[in-house]
């Protein structure tokens, strides 16, 4: 028998049952009941296109848009607590004084376009885990802790453990991401954010976010996070180490960028090969470091 096939293209979602959660507890209860069959609907700016294509076809959609209890920003000592339902647009102007707020604002302007930013959410973006998503890269850069709730309670997951592969996180099917905790960068930290995309508003082919301290002496606490180069956002650990204690000069930035470019088995797709993505890492990392030191 010859192979059988079905039609390849869809543009309307497959049927699903819809539940509007009125509390986190209710949302979590739905997840507990439906497990893998359910999907959380936050801003929907990535999920709904995938559903329209029928690439995602959850049997149950749990809408958490009504949950004002997840729409908050709080400074808690040295930590910025971001409720999962805070919309991207909120970050266009710094939400906190100092480098953390500025970094979030720099990145926010690259998140899609205005109509995407007014709907899409911080938590939704993290849970979706696109390897080229700005918030995923920033969360990793800042060593964020991601707090969840589930029928059995909840837990805090370090960003480094949260992102597993393309569109895949450590979240269990019955687990809801409720909050991201971003340790604030020290006030004198310098930051840089660079990305390259084919068109304005597109997901970046590659992006580099950096933070470092280098007031009057050598580089300290260097952090480099990259997006779009691997199957998840990554920290360029070897490049960070290479920078540590070095003078903040063109040469050391160039050397660190070169290390970052070689650190990963880069991914390729129709917009650029793995080699090309390494070239982008090299250029964007260096530029982000230069940007950090010059502003």
């Amino acid at each position: 028998m010859a192979p059988g096939y079905y039609t390849p293209a869809f543009m309307k979602p497959a049927p699903f049952d819809y539940h509007q959660a009125r509390s986190v507890a209710e949302a979590v209860a739905h997840l507990g009941e439906y497990g893998y069959e359910a999907k959380i609907l936050a801003g929907g700016q990535s999920l709904v296109p995938a559903m329209n294509f029928r690439l995602a076809r959850p049997a149950v959609l749990v809408d958490i848009n009504p949950l004002d209890e997840l729409d908050y920003l709080e400074e808690d000592g040295d930590t910025l607590r971001i409720g999962a339902m805070v919309r991207h647009v909120t970050f266009e102007r710094p939400v906190t004084e100092g480098p953390t707020g500025r970094l979030l604002a720099m990145a926010a302007h690259h998140v899609g376009h205005l109509p995407i930013r007014v709907r899409g959410t911080f938590g939704g973006s993290l849970a979706h885990a696109d390897p080229a998503a700005e918030w995923c890269v920033i969360a990793l850069l800042l060593d964020a802790e991601l707090a969840t709730r589930s029928p059995s309670g909840g837990r805090d997951i370090p960003a480094a453990d949260f992102f597993q592969t393309v569109f895949t996180t450590a979240l269990e099917p019955e687990e809801l991401l409720v909050e991201a905790r971003l340790p604030n960068l020290a006030p004198h930290t310098r930051i840089g954010f660079q990305q390259f995309s084919r068109r304005a508003g597109d997901f970046a082919l590659t992006m580099a976010a950096v933070a470092l301290e280098a007031d009057d002496g050598p580089v300290a606490n260097a952090r480099i996070a990259l997006g779009g180069v691997s199957d998840r956002p990554v920290r360029a650990g070897e490049a960070e180490q290479a920078l540590e204690g070095q003078p903040a000069t063109d040469e050391s930035f160039r050397a660190a960028a070169e290390i970052a470019a070689q650190e990963f088995d880069a991914i390729g797709d129709i917009h650029g090969s793995a080699d090309y993505r390494r070239d982008l890492v090299r250029a964007l990392t260096r530029r982000a470091l230069e940007q950090a030191i010059s502003t």
């Binding site: 509007q20 296109p49 848009n65 205005l114 109509p115 007014v118 709907r119």
Partner: peptide
């Protein structure tokens, strides 16, 4: 707010 109405469901 300007939104993409193709990315929202009527029930929402």
């Amino acid at each position: 707010e300007p939104v993409r109405s193709c990315l929202m469901f009527a029930v929402q």
